[in-house]
């Protein structure tokens, strides 16, 4: 009988918070081997196998059904899976890993406080500089969809996988879209969030994989877990 596979982030704060969160449901996740070894086991509830993955790979593993449950941010799920709601139904928010995906511009742009202003600035910039206003982000799909929905044009997305706040100073972008929790990094880099520039409020979330093979035993394990988490044991129509 194959166990229910639970995907957790392989390191960092998100992993520790997730482990603490499951402990409240008497599901104990213990790392085995050294700190650097990506292995662990679950006690307190039979039939669960732990899979440690990079948080950014969990959406893909959920979509493929190689894990039954996975913990990751809503930002990553929505960015990486176009049809996420149908593929990976949300089980529950977990109350940590809060992060807002926002659009920010240099504080010196006194004329740009809203998305409409950004659209004006982008048209002006395109005409003056011969290329579109560049927005650096790793959230290409979310940003493109958000700006399109709000009628902003004359921009292009440039990829930035880290230190995104620095791209403006380095002149590889004019504005950024990135995750922020306190806004301190933005302030330190002389950037300001647009008043209507919040794309997504994200937090760590437990997702289920519709495409996984759910045996009767897996379903029963999941129903027990749900009960311990204070959720209805009914798996709902999705699984």
């Amino acid at each position: 009988m194959s166990a229910l596979k639970l995907g957790l982030p392989s390191k960092g704060r998100l992993q520790q918070d997730a482990i603490d969160w499951f402990a409240k449901a008497d599901v104990t996740v213990a790392r085995t081997g050294s700190d650097r070894e990506y292995a662990g086991r679950v006690t307190g509830l039979d039939g669960i196998e732990l899979v440690l993955l990079s948080a950014s790979e969990i959406p893909r593993e959920l979509a493929a059904g190689r894990i039954h449950l996975g913990v990751t941010g809503e930002d990553l799920i929505q960015e990486k899976l176009a049809d996420w709601a149908a593929i990976t139904p949300k089980v529950t928010h977990m109350g940590f890993g809060f992060a807002d995906l926002i659009i920010a511009v240099p504080t010196s742009w006194a004329d740009v406080t809203t998305l409409r202003d950004l659209d004006d600035a982008a048209a002006q910039f395109h005409a003056n500089h011969g290329h579109r206003l560049r927005i650096a982000t790793k959230y290409h799909n979310l940003v493109r969809g958000f700006l399109s929905q709000h009628g902003v044009a004359d921009f292009e997305i440039v990829d930035s996988q880290g230190a995104t706040e620095g791209t403006i100073k380095n002149q590889t972008a004019e504005a950024i879209a990135d995750i922020t929790s306190s806004g301190a990094t933005l302030t330190a880099n002389h950037l300001r969030i647009l008043t209507d520039g919040e794309i997504l409020k994200s937090q760590a979330t437990l997702f289920a994989a519709r495409n996984a093979h759910w045996s009767q035993a897996n379903r029963e394990t999941f129903a027990t877990l749900r009960e311990r988490l204070g959720l209805s044991p009914d798996l709902g129509p999705d699984l």
Partner: peptide, 8 residues
């Protein structure tokens, strides 16, 4: 009043 950065 501001730190000036970027191409705009």
């Amino acid at each position: 009043r501001h730190v000036i950065q970027g191409k705009r």
